[in-house]
Amino acid sequence: MAHETLNVDGMTCGHCVETVSKAVSSIPGVSKVDVDLEKKRVTVDFDENQTALADIKSKITDVGYEVVGA
């Protein structure tokens, strides 16, 4: 099980938190998602045998936000 924290730009409200959380949670292998609006961070626990960090970043980008610093 992997544990990663991503910095995400573009999140400004509760709807953003819900959008990112639902999108990342829908990825097979993701077991936990925590979106911190104030710090603009997304923490994810996932099974590396089922998904890759690149897939998680791509999903966040697909729903309209930018993963920065990684």
Rank of each mutant, 00 (worst) to 15 (best):
M1T: 00
A2I: 02
A2F: 02
H3L: 08
H3K: 08
H3D: 11
E4A: 12
E4P: 02
L6H: 09
V8G: 00
V8H: 02
V8M: 02
G10M: 03
M11Q: 09
T12G: 10
C13R: 12
C13E: 12
H15N: 15
H15L: 15
C16I: 10
E18V: 10
T19V: 13
V20T: 05
V20S: 06
K22P: 05
A23H: 14
S25Q: 15
S25I: 08
S25M: 07
S26Y: 00
I27D: 04
P28L: 05
P28I: 05
G29H: 02
V30R: 00
V30D: 02
V30C: 01
V30Y: 03
S31P: 01
K32M: 04
K32A: 03
V33G: 04
D34N: 14
V35C: 11
V35K: 11
D36L: 08
L37H: 12
K39N: 14
K39V: 01
K40Q: 15
R41A: 07
R41L: 12
R41H: 15
V42S: 12
D47T: 01
E48D: 15
D55V: 03
D55L: 04
I56P: 09
K57P: 04
K57Q: 13
K59D: 11
K59G: 05
K59H: 13
I60R: 11
T61K: 15
D62Y: 05
V63D: 10
V63M: 14
G64S: 06
G64D: 06
Y65I: 09
Y65W: 07
Y65G: 08
E66F: 03
